[in-house]
Amino acid sequence: MSSIQVADQTFIAVPGSAVAEALSHPDRWRVWWPDLRLSVTDDRAEKGIRWAVDGALTGTMEVWLEPVSVVDGVILHYFLHTEPAGANPVDLVVENRQRRAAGKVMAFELKRGLEAGRAAGERPPHARP
């Protein structure tokens, strides 16, 4: 079992391919997780991406994109399973909270950027007749 475990989900009203494209840029990873070194272990395209994690934490991280055709978008599932690196004692409660917040920052940045210009409750542009 990992000391740091985060599981979260966010709905984004765009196709999985658009989220996958936005998620595929390593420069963004360094902004979202500046103290982590990520190595892609499985690029699943419109289904998401899996990484090996090194740096401040050691373990795995994944974004899984689950299509939701009835509402024309995807659920972005975020998973982080890691251990703190190094010999310094870590407050695991604080660390878990910070890592959950970092996951939400990533998800909502993607959501805001990809849904820009769409009013709440309005069908996504890709789903309009």
Rank of each mutant, 00 (worst) to 15 (best):
M1H: 15
M1D: 14
S3I: 03
S3V: 00
Q9F: 15
T10N: 11
T10H: 12
F11W: 01
A13P: 02
A13R: 08
V14N: 04
S17Q: 15
S17N: 10
L23S: 03
S24H: 06
P26I: 07
P26F: 11
R28N: 08
R28Q: 00
W32K: 10
W32M: 08
W33H: 15
P34D: 05
L36D: 13
L38G: 08
V40T: 12
T41L: 15
T41P: 07
R44N: 01
R44S: 03
R50Q: 08
W51S: 01
A52V: 02
A52K: 02
D54R: 13
G55K: 02
T58L: 00
T60R: 05
T60N: 06
V63G: 04
V63E: 07
W64C: 13
W64I: 11
L65Y: 11
L65M: 14
L65F: 12
P67V: 05
V68M: 07
S69G: 10
V71F: 01
I75H: 04
I75Q: 07
I75N: 08
L76A: 09
L76H: 06
L76T: 04
H77T: 06
T82C: 15
T82G: 03
E83I: 07
E83T: 05
A85K: 01
A87G: 09
A87I: 14
D91L: 12
L92F: 06
N96K: 13
N96C: 12
R97I: 10
Q98G: 09
R99S: 03
A101K: 11
A101W: 13
G103A: 09
F108A: 06
E109W: 04
L110N: 02
L110V: 07
G113A: 05
L114T: 11
G117W: 01
A119N: 06
E122C: 01
R123S: 10
P124G: 15
H126C: 14
A127K: 10
A127L: 05
A127E: 07
R128Q: 15
R128Y: 10
R128S: 12
P129E: 12
P129L: 11
